[in-house]
């Protein structure tokens, strides 16, 4: 029983990171219909920049703030330089552009930083908290709390603020949003900044547990995407639930089946979801118009 609880704890912790990545996917997907395969690199950048700044002597909170701001700026640059010029391109092209951006950012991180594995201290120490025979690290609580806080923050932003509603309107109908005077380019910029910032936050929160290196991004991107898809592409609630579910499935697979194939579990689930319910758990079916 305590064993199961332990697996659940670790599943919820990684799940929270996947949920943050999935939320990042969702924001960009809603604003631009683009699935950003470079989403995982934002997580990598969040961790790497924080480590770099911290070991240079900058206090951890400021280093983290710097990392999130710089990553958000990189997200905006990516939108301006790579996504906006390719508007209307076929999906194959967009997939290659965002994968290209992902490889480019990895290459840049290798050059600017290095190829080693890094971490920085946990925020509230490393003394495990005992709960019902299992233990959980304080940093796990930071990660889980971070994911929930971001979700609530986004929910308030999208439903309660004028700007958030403008973003929603743009995702529903770009042309109509332009007609009622919404600056859709600004909405795109904002979405990329927000999405990249959330990714970086995930990296900042998770690095003390998962460690970071220039090449960790792709795995986060794939799992986060799996979570977003499981929940239903474009649905923030789905992204949150889907991310946590992927984390749990992974931890349970590692615990009870095979730790080597824990990464496979996410994909098997995704393939099953795609065949049984392609619109995901919370998505709606769409009909093509001809």
């Amino acid at each position: 029983m305590s064993e199961l609880l332990q697996f659940l704890f670790s599943g919820v912790t990684v799940g929270a990171v996947y949920a943050l990545v999935a939320l990042g996917f969702t924001i960009i997907y809603n604003a631009s219909d683009v699935v950003n395969f470079a989403q995982g690199e934002f997580v990598m950048l969040g961790g790497m920049i924080t480590w770099f700044a911290h070991q240079a002597g900058i206090p951890l909170p400021i280093a983290a703030f710097l990392a999130i701001s710089i990553t958000a700026a990189i997200g905006v640059a990516m939108n301006k330089l790579a996504i906006e010029p390719a508007r209307g391109a076929p999906i194959v092209s967009l997939i290659i552009i965002t994968i290209g951006a992902s490889i480019f950012l990895q290459g840049a991180a290798q050059l600017v930083f290095d190829k080693q594995i890094h971490d920085f201290p946990a925020f509230s120490g490393n003394t495990p908290i005992r709960v019902g025979g299992a233990t959980i690290l304080p940093q796990s609580l930071w990660v889980i709390g971070g994911a929930l806080a971001v979700f609530v923050g986004l929910w308030i932003f999208f439903t309660r603020t004028l700007l958030g509603r403008a973003v929603l309107a743009t995702s529903n109908n770009r042309l109509a949003a332009q007609l009622v005077g919404i600056n859709t380019n600004f909405v795109m910029t904002l979405s990329f900044a927000l999405s990249a910032g959330i990714g970086a936050l995930a990296g900042v929160l998770a690095t003390p547990i998962t460690l970071t290196a220039y090449n960790v991004g792709i795995a986060f991107a794939l799992k986060g995407f799996a979570g977003a898809m499981l929940g239903g592409m474009g649905n923030p609630k789905g992204a949150l639930v889907g991310g946590f579910l992927i984390g749990l499935i992974e931890a349970l697979t590692a615990g009870y089946l095979s730790s080597q194939y824990k990464d496979a579990a996410a994909f098997v689930v995704i393939l099953l979801v795609l065949f049984v319910r392609p619109q995901g758990l919370f998505g709606r079916k769409s009909t093509d118009r001809v």
């Binding site: 790579a82 010029p85 092209s93 290209g100 490889i103 480019f104 990895q106 290459g107």
Partner: peptide
């Protein structure tokens, strides 16, 4: 060799944007 990924990523983006 160090720049390989950087160049590959850049080429992928540039070609898709300018020479679709």
């Amino acid at each position: 060799a160090e720049y390989e990924q950087l160049v590959l990523g850049l080429v992928m983006m540039l070609v898709m944007i300018f020479l679709r």
